[in-house]
Every structure is written in structure tokens, then in C-alpha cells.
Design a protein around this nucleic acid. Structure first.
Lengths: 143, 143
DNA sequence: TCCTGTATGCAATCGGGTTGCATTTTTTTG
DNA sequence: CAAAAAAATGCAACCCGATTGCATACAGGA
């Protein structure tokens, strides 16, 4: 329950730990799923959307979070798992439920690797599965 | 070089072959890469954006094209390869070049399958690799 | 304390995607 | 074949997430 846990994370990645940045990081750590800018705006009433946006950008550059596109149209952000940076082997599969519009992390399902053609260099991979999640597939029509 | 090739494709998939739809389909067949609505608007000066948009939607529903999200922020559309519909096994890997902003199809690299957790059902998969393409990696700074 | 660079909030803008509605075109029907 | 109905299209407007310009607030160093 250290108060400064977030500060340490930020400093270790070379980001000055301002109050807002700690706030964003703490909120994202508490969230159990990849989170959108919109959600963060709702959760952080004290912060402006643009400030959150800029914090997320800084976090991305410094490999504190990475963006995932789940096909919902809005970008989701997720805390990087690796200490140094996110390598392919740290990346995992994501699942987007078309019913409840939630994005799930399958942390234990790593992305299968492929062999790229000559001359192509990889920066990141996104393995997105769309469908219906366990909860929504259980209750057919709960509108 | 059959004039009615596109018509046949459309009819086989249950879509009435109007002039505009044939036009869109022909343009997409001619394009060697997944194409965005924006590109289609530029290529098809006679058609309105909303009309192209609606044609693409109809095509999607009838499995003539499918949408892929390459992480560029704009949706790309690609002709379905399968006769009947696009199954997982028809799906292939895509590559988005962060330099030239083009999306490539690796038609011969099929998406490796994963095992979903209990209760999760799959509709579609997107396997997106981001990085630098062969052409852009050859010429370092050609701005 | 003063100065400088960074961080932040506010408001405006941008752009892709989408929709409402009137018009045109096609199909159906008498 | 003409009238009526249905489908397709174009135009303009709208929605909404993402992004930026700018003025202010703040932190750290001289």
C-alpha cells in the first residue's frame, strides 16, 4: 500500500511524476481491463480530457502503457507488463465482446509469432479476437 | 476481361448489381491493397462518400468485403477471398507501415489459431503487425 | 525572488464515420 | 404501358473521438 509506488514506476521509466500522472497511472493500475480515454475522463473528474490525453501519450512514448485497437473505434490503453519495454513476448491476445463492448486481456495467451517477409521490420503486434464473451454468451437477451 | 464479372460476383453473394456497386467492386479488385473509404472517394469522383459508405456496408454484410483495422485510425476494406464467406482459415496477416502508411496483405501468412477460454465465442480475428515495410526500410530518409 | 521551461485547462478544430431527408432510379403491379 | 411502391443515391448536416493552440499555473534553478 505504498503511497509512492506510482512515483517509482514513473521515475524508473524516465517520466517526471506529477500529481496528474500519478493519478492516471493509479487509475489504470486499478482498472482490471484496458481502458479508454473516455473512461478515464469519467473516472478522473478533476482532470481535463486533453491533459489525460497528453499523459497517455507520454506514457506511450516511455513504454508505461501501450495502445490497443480493439475494433470498437476507440483506442484502449493498457499498462505495459514488461519492466523495460513491451517485447513481442510480453504481448498477449485481446478479446472484444460485441455485446457488452468490453475489451478483455488474455494475459496467459501469448501471441503466436509469424515470419515476416524479407525487409519488413516489426514494431508491435495486435492480435484481436472479436466475438461474444463468457458472460454475454450465458444470458442470451438481457437488454 | 468479361464486362460482367463484377455483376456475377455480386449476384452470387445476393447483392443486386447496380452501376455504383459494380464500380466500387471493380475499383477494389483493381487495388492491390486494402483500401479506405477516403481512397475510394478519391478514386470514384462520380460517387458520393455516403453512397460508397453504404455500398461498403452492404458488401460487408454479404461477405463480399471485410473491414480490417490496421491501427492507422481509418478502416480499410478488403475483398473476401473465400467463395462463401470468410472463415478463420481464410484470414491472413496484415502489416501496417508506419512510414508510408500503407497496409499490406500477407496472403500466404495465415493467422495462427489460439484456444479461447471457456464460454468465449469468436466472430473474427485481426492479426496486425505494425512496423516498417520493405520499401521504406530500404531508403532511410526520403522526405 | 525572478526567470525559464514544463504541465495543465479551456475552447476550438479536425476528420472519419454516420444519418436524415429529398430526389432519382428501379422494380412491381394493375 | 402507366401508376405506385421500393430501393438506391446525393447532399448536407451531424456525431464523436482525437488533437491542437493558446493562455495560465506551476516547479525548479540561478
Amino acid at each position: 500500500m505504498e503511497i509512492v509506488k506510482e512515483s517509482l514506476i514513473l521515475e524508473r521509466k524516465g517520466v517526471k511524476p506529477t500529481a496528474n500522472r500519478i493519478l492516471v497511472l493509479r487509475t489504470m493500475l486499478a482498472a482490471s481491463h484496458p481502458i479508454s480515454l473516455r473512461e478515464l475522463v469519467m473516472l478522473l473528474e478533476t482532470m481535463d480530457k486533453s491533459s489525460i490525453f497528453r499523459v497517455l501519450n507520454i506514457f506511450s512514448v516511455h513504454h508505461i502503457v501501450h495502445a490497443i485497437e480493439d475494433g470498437s473505434g476507440t483506442i484502449k490503453y493498457e499498462i505495459c507488463s514488461g519492466e523495460k519495454f513491451c517485447s513481442i513476448h510480453d504481448m498477449h491476445t485481446h478479446f472484444y465482446c460485441e455485446v457488452c463492448h468490453q475489451t478483455f486481456c488474455f494475459k496467459n495467451i501469448h501471441i503466436p509469432e509469424i515470419q515476416l517477409p524479407e525487409g519488413f521490420f516489426m514494431d508491435s503486434i495486435n492480435y484481436m479476437v472479436k466475438g461474444v464473451c463468457a458472460k454475454c454468451s450465458r444470458k442470451p437477451a438481457s437488454k
